[in-house]
Design a protein around this nucleic acid. Structure first.
Length: 999
RNA sequence: GGGCGAGUAGCUCAGCUGGUUAGAGCGCCUGCCUUACAAGCAGGAAGUCGCAGGUUCGAGUCCUGUCUUGCCCACCA
């Protein structure tokens, strides 16, 4: 850390960020304990737990910035604050990453290692990436309570999972069932609907003849999956289809199998107009057919092995991969003359998000959580009875207990929940919470069980509807294999869906099922901040488990932020390899710059387009990151042609080539802001303060304040008000715009420039100016802190050193860290809109003078007085302010251009060789420019102004000539137009006069 | 097939309940190494608000249609 900040010219985040973060950690300010204050003094955010599949990318940086801004803001507002950090074991995602890696590096599969061996490998991976993730989070400035860091497989979270499973099993909200699921044949597990994406594939529609058993002809069925005919158990027609309805009840000979299957009528499955109007029904391999099978009591034949081959039910086709089976089936059917036709066809095929392989609908035994309404309702913790878990979650949003920002996302939540589809919670994986159910393979009399488990309220047992087997669930710990006399129990092999444990995150992390002080105090949380794609998967499930386990919602607000897209419009993701490591951005621009830029771009309706580029480590040239670069380990620079390794969170650094890190000019906004803040603080404010004495601050009364002081204070409090308003509804871009404008365009561009000469004035003036500079910078640092915490904290320390006593009317000593300083309060008495209008007029005049001098290229011209001619009232006003600030301080260069000044008079004569500017209808300005004036171009310019003014006059006159406008528009709108017209006319007069005076 | 967004300056985007001459950042042009900042300062140019209708005294803003585009959801053989 530089001990002498003014010596450092440019802001260097690398010297600041690490030490500042350490200061925060040392101070323990991120950790708050429950206290006895009311709920209005609490603020709690649960992080959307990152998967331990890999390192964080920019999307996380956005998500975390949003949360950290809220956390820091509320901490400064004096709330007892908790931002809970942690990571997710991410079952299928992590296991598949580790398995893939195992195969790539060691050519081994999970079966080579066995369950324990693989899980051990995954734990190692988890440790590595959890560390990396947590250190990335620290690097970008997250003010999480690290003491409370959780992982979904740790003791505390696991216990919550067990208790929840146990209760739901007991309450019959969890059941085992044989269902058609999305089967990933590569990973050999069921995957959730949400883990399936659809791809449009070119295929064919095969029309196949199924001969009627009685020899009276055949039916033609159309299918995209001819191989599944091996599992057909019926042919369906529409019961009102004149062509076929008489055939219902007959049978057909299913080709290639020798089986006879019935012709059935099913109005739901069959649309008469599609294909031939006949549908082959394969309940074991198609979701629609499955439903149809249930309706018609059809046999379900499974013809697939878990790895996607035809099983023994496929007769001679057994052992073939499905694709091969299809070819063989079609060939054999052709040989039998049973193919009527083959047409080209495009359709959507589900693919596994994880393995990218085609999903097979597969009949298997799975565990489900009941989402629909149940008879008698569901009894939640606390005694409330709800119709069903999904309905309970729906109600929280419908009745406003939970509010979405932006509100449109509530629809996504409600639409999904309203389907009330049971949730398949089992996965055939090894990485995760193993389902705490034990089976008893032999048959046992219930009395034996009653005896074995008497006085045990932590064991529940029931018969599996499907197999009739006894199933036992124990709340905690293991159920010994010999718990039932004469039997050997074996535990379920499956693990729980990842979302089962993350659904409990808001309360499991706080110690539930124990009624800990944390749980009582911090639950429910304040807001959940996430992206739209896990509204259903995660948000909805946290709500329903929260209601069931706690009897209360998990959070009051859900803020859904935009997503970061790459240069090609694709969302960033670890697996795509198109992301950027926030650490690399922070390395180049600083974490503050990254955070500010992100917040600046986080608007309500648009995703953030962020083209990334690799910075060539040899020549610095930027090479746009494109799809074709993903997963490359070497890339040649477009410019210097030398090779480097493009950085990618998912690809290891090989080390034989220098690394080209990712970059984006989008972060320059933030960098410039930080640098500007550094410069103005060190170069102006701190220097000025160093001239004063410590503790010189005295109460300032309104008599002490001049126009500039009042103006900047008024603008400051306007800014505070608007930052509060926009942050309270999660409008990050809006709040940063207010801050940017105030700090840069108002404080730096105007106030600081006005302050400079005053610092050299006589008497009390310098002290007052210093005091206001200190007060403004104090507020600016506080206001910017949630967005750019490092640099503001650093500057705060210097400000405290140089001006420990700060304030206006009330002087207070400031010390300690900014992170726990108080948030500025709006002081409405400092707002003065008419004064702001005066200042605007002054700025207008100043700009006019600058413009003249820029136009005539008179920058080096000697200082001369400009003349302002205006109405007496305006002149009085101008004299009061302008003369104070300008005329008496002729060296106030920056406000008026080089060494200018203004003399304001109501009847001033136009000086010789001057350029004219019309400010408004009553005010004009003459700027002497000597022989530099170009009469022709000046005249041309003025004529252009006249033309423009006349255009406005015409428009305004037309408006006022419209009788309907005059009679129907509100009075003040009409009056405005009249005033405007009057003013415009006077402007025209003045312009014409100026032209005339030019000769 | 259903739902939700987006189309405003060369680029990326603001513009909330309709009301002065539609804004910002970047880029561009002109001039400045001005004792905080040239990664800066001062000034400037630049838009028929996708298109067509409608409502209204008044539309970037509301309504209808339409085109383009992105995302989410959905079981169509």
């Amino acid at each position: 850390m530089s001990s002498n900040p003014s010596a450092s010219k440019e802001y260097n985040h690398k010297e600041i960020e690490g030490p500042v973060y350490q200061k925060w950690l040392d101070s323990g300010v991120f950790h708050h304990e429950p206290d006895d204050r009311g709920p209005e003094h609490r603020y709690c955010i649960m992080i959307p737990l990152p998967n331990v599949t890999g390192a964080l990318h920019l999307g996380h940086a956005l998500n975390h910035t949003c949360q950290d801004v809220m956390t820091r803001w509320n901490r400064m507002k004096g709330k007892t604050t908790l931002w809970m950090p942690g990571t997710d074991h991410a079952g299928i995602a992590t296991q598949s990453v580790v398995e893939r890696r195992l195969f790539e590096l060691e050519n081994k599969t999970r079966h080579d290692l066995g369950r324990a061996g693989l899980v051990e490998r995954i734990w190692k991976w988890k440790d590595q990436y959890e560390n990396r993730i947590l250190s990335q989070m620290k690097l970008i400035g997250n003010s999480c309570d690290w003491d409370r860091t959780r992982f979904t497989l740790d003791e505390v979270c696991s216990r919550a999972v067990r208790h929840t499973f146990f209760a739901m099993f007991r309450d019959d909200l969890i059941y085992r069932g044989r269902r058609l699921v999305n089967w990933d044949t590569e990973l050999q597990t069921a995957v959730a609907d949400d883990e399936v994406y659809h791809e449009t594939l070119k295929s064919h529609l095969w029309h196949i003849r199924y001969p009627l058993s009685d020899g009276s002809g055949h039916l033609v069925v159309a299918t995209t999956r001819p191989e599944t005919m091996l599992g057909d158990t019926a042919v369906a027609v529409h019961p009102e289809d004149e062509r076929y309805k008489h055939l219902i009840g007959k049978t057909v000979d299913l080709p290639l199998t020798g089986r006879q299957i019935p012709v059935i009528g099913d109005p739901i499955l069959v649309k008469q107009e599609f294909g031939s109007g006949c549908v082959k029904v394969t309940p074991g391999h198609d979701p629609n057919d499955y439903e149809c099978g249930l309706r018609n009591n059809l046999e379900q034949i499974n013809i697939m092995t878990p790895n996607g081959c035809v099983n023994e039910n496929g007769g001679e086709y057994a052992g073939l991969v499905f694709d091969e089976a299809r070819e063989r089936v079609v060939k054999n059917l052709e040989a039998l003359g049973l193919i009527e036709s083959i047409e080209d066809y495009e359709h959507e095929v589900g693919h596994s998000d994880r393995s990218k392989s085609a999903i097979e609908p597969y009949l298997s035994e799975q565990w489900f959580a009941r989402m629909g309404d149940v008879e008698g309702g569901v009894r939640c913790k606390g005694g409330t009875v709800v119709p069903g878990l999904a309905q309970a979650a729906i109600d929280t949003v419908k009745d406003g207990r939970i509010q979405f920002f932006p509100s449109r996302y509530a629809n996504q939540y409600l639409d999904w929940l309203s389907e009330k589809r049971d949730w398949c919670i089992s996965r055939q994986l090894w990485w995760g919470h193993r389902i705490p159910v034990w089976y008893c393979d032999g048959d046992v009399d219930e009395k034996v069980l009653q005896e074995a488990f008497k006085d045990r309220d932590d064991v529940v047992y029931k018969r599996d509807e499907w197999s009739g087997q006894w199933m036992f669930c124990i709340r905690e710990g293991e159920l010994p294999a010999d718990s039932v006399p004469g039997q050997t129990l074996r535990q379920e092999e499956d693990v729980l869906d990842t979302w089962f444990s993350s659904a409990l995150w808001p309360h499991s992390t706080l110690g539930w099922p124990d009624e800990t002080a944390d749980l009582k105090y911090f639950y429910p949380g304040s807001v959940l901040i996430t992206t739209r794609d896990i509204i259903t998967l995660w948000v909805a499930r946290m709500v329903l488990t929260g209601l069931y386990n706690i009897g209360d919602i998990p959070f009051h607000h859900v803020y859904v932020h935009p997503k970061i897209l790459d240069g090609e419009g694709q969302t960033m993701s670890k697996s795509k390899g198109n992301g950027a490591d926030p650490a690399e951005i922070a390395e180049q621009y600083g974490a503050d710059a990254m955070r500010f830029s992100i917040a600046y771009m986080t608007t309500e309706s648009q995703d953030i387009r962020m083209p990334m580029a690799y910075a060539c480590p040899h020549c610095g040239h930027l090479i746009p990151q494109m799809e074709k670069h993903r997963k490359l380990t070497r890339l040649a620079c477009d410019k210097c042609k030398k090779e480097f390794q493009p950085s990618n969170p998912m690809v290891d650094v090989t080390g034989d080539l220098p690394l080209g890190i990712v970059s984006s000019e989008k972060f320059e906004v933030g960098w410039r802001l930080c640098n500007k803040l550094w410069q103005v603080s060190n170069g102006v404010v701190f220097r000025a303060l160093a001239d004063g004495e410590k503790g010189e601050a005295k109460p300032i009364t309104s008599d002490d304040l001049n126009l500039g002081d009042r103006w900047i204070l008024s603008r400051l409090h306007y800014c505070i008000e608007n930052v509060n308003a926009s942050l309270s509804v999660y409008r990050y871009a809006e709040s940063t715009s207010y801050l940017y404008r105030f700090f840069w365009n108002e404080f730096c561009d105007w106030y600081v420039e006005m302050a400079k000469p005053q610092l050299r004035a006589e008497g009390e003036r310098p002290r007052i100016t210093r005091q206001i500079l200190a007060y403004c910078l104090d507020s600016i640092l506080r206001l910017l802190h949630p967005f750019i915490p490092f640099i503001t904290e650093e500057l705060w320390a210097h400000l405290n050193e140089l001006a420990p006593q700060r304030g206006l009317e009330n002087i207070a000593a400031q010390d300690g860290l900014l992170v726990s300083a108080s948030w500025p309060e709006v002081d409405a008495s400092l707002r003065d809109e008419s004064l702001e209008a005066d200042m605007e007029a002054l700025q207008e005049i100043t700009r006019a003078i600058r413009d003249v001098r820029a136009q005539v290229n008179a920058v080096r011209a000697r200082a001369q007085e400009s003349i302002m001619r205006s109405l007496p009232s305006v002149v009085v006003r101008a004299k009061q302010h302008v003369c104070d600030l300008v005329v008496k301080n002729k060296d106030m260069c920056m406000v008026l251009g080089p060494c200018d000044a203004i003399d304001a008079q109501s009847d001033a004569a136009r000086p010789e060789a001057s350029a004219a500017r019309v400010i408004d209808g009553s005010t004009e300005l003459y700027v002497p420019v000597g022989n530099l004036i170009d009469l022709d171009s000046e005249k041309k310019r003025l004529e252009g102004e006249v033309k423009k003014t006349e255009g406005f006059i015409k428009g305004t006159e037309a408006k006022l000539a419209n009788e309907k406008f005059v009679s129907r528009a509100p009075d003040h709108v009409v009056q405005n137009e009249r005033d405007k017209l009057e003013d415009l006319k006077q402007q025209r007069e003045k312009l014409l006069q100026s032209i005339e005076e030019l000769g």
